[in-house]
Amino acid sequence: VKKFLNDPDDIVDEMLDGAVRAHGAYLEPVPGTRRAFMAREAPREGKVGLVVGGGSGHEPCFLGYVGPGMADAVAVGNVFSSPPPDPIARAAQAVSGGEGVLFIYGNYAGDTMNFEMAAELVQANGIPVRTVVTTDDIASSRAEDRDGRRGVAGNVLIFKAAGAACDKGWSLDACERAARKANLQTYTMGVALEPCSMPQTRRYNFSIGPQDMEVGVGIHGEPGVAREPMQSADAVVDMVMNRIFTEMPSQSGDRVAVLVNSFGSTPLMELYVLYRRVEQRLKTKGLTVAARWVGHYCTSLDMVGASISVMHLDDELAELLAHPCDTPFFRVGK
C-alpha cells in the first residue's frame, strides 16, 4: 500500500508539525511536550477545561476539534495508541481555568490506563479532574454491557456537547453530567468494506473478501463483530438503523443529530447516498433531524467504510449542539 511518507517512524511528528502549521490560527503546542496542543484562547478563567485525545490515525479526530466552544486541548498518541500520561497531564494543567478539567476519550484499555495516570498527576497538583469515557459503539458489546463498549465517531458529537457546556461556564459537575448524557444518548455503528494499512507496515492488517463487508467495526482497523455478504447502500443503512432503533428509546416527534462519517477512503459521494437513507428512516419513525454532519470526522487511516451515529436529543443536548463553536474541522453558528 503506497502512502505519502518519509521515515515511517516520523509520521506522527511530521503530521503534527504540518497540522500545527496548517491550524496555527486555532492551536499551539502545550509547553514542555510535542504531543499536546491547546486552543489559542485557552485557558479561560472560570471555565472548565475540556481535554480530549487518543491515538493518531483518526484525523481530523482529535486535533481538528480544538477551538472555542469545543476542546481546549488535545493529547495525541502514536498511530492507534493512546498518548502517555505526560502530555495529557501537561495539557490539562495548561488549560485549567480554575474550575477543573474534564477528560473525554474513547473506552480502550490503553487510553483508560494513560488518562487515569494523568488524572492522578493533575489532581495531585490540586486541579479537580472528571472523566467521561465514551462508549457509543453499539456493535461492540451487548446493551447490558454499555460500559464495555468502544468509543467511536460519536465522540465528535459528545465533544461538541461537552465543549458547549464548558463554554457556557457550567460547573465541572454540570459539564460532566452533560457529557455523560451525551455519551449515553449517542449510538454508532460502523461498516468496513476494506481494512486499513498502518504507515509502518504499509500492509493491510487482514483482508475482507471481495464480496464481503465487516459489520460493527471500530476505528482502529480491527475486524468487526461479523463478516457479512456485501449489500446495497440502503440495505446497509437499514441494518444499522434497525440496530440503532432497537437501542434508542425514541418517540415520534423526538429530535436527533446525525453524523455520517467516512473511515478514510469512502468518498463524500457515497456518504451522501447513505445519509439520504438515514434521513428517510428517521423521518419514517417520526424523528426530526435537528443537526447533521456528513464527511470525514473520525477516520481509521485509509479504511474504506463508514459509520452512522445518532444522538437522541433533549432540549439541553439540542441547545448544546447548536451552541457556536469554531475549530479547524467543526464549526457551528457565528
Binding site: G55, G77, N78, S81, S82, P84, A109, G110, M113, N114
Partner: peptide
C-alpha cells in the same frame, strides 16, 4: 513516551 496499553 509510548502510551498505548504497553506503555503503562
Amino acid at each position: 513516551e509510548i502510551g498505548g496499553s504497553m506503555g503503562p
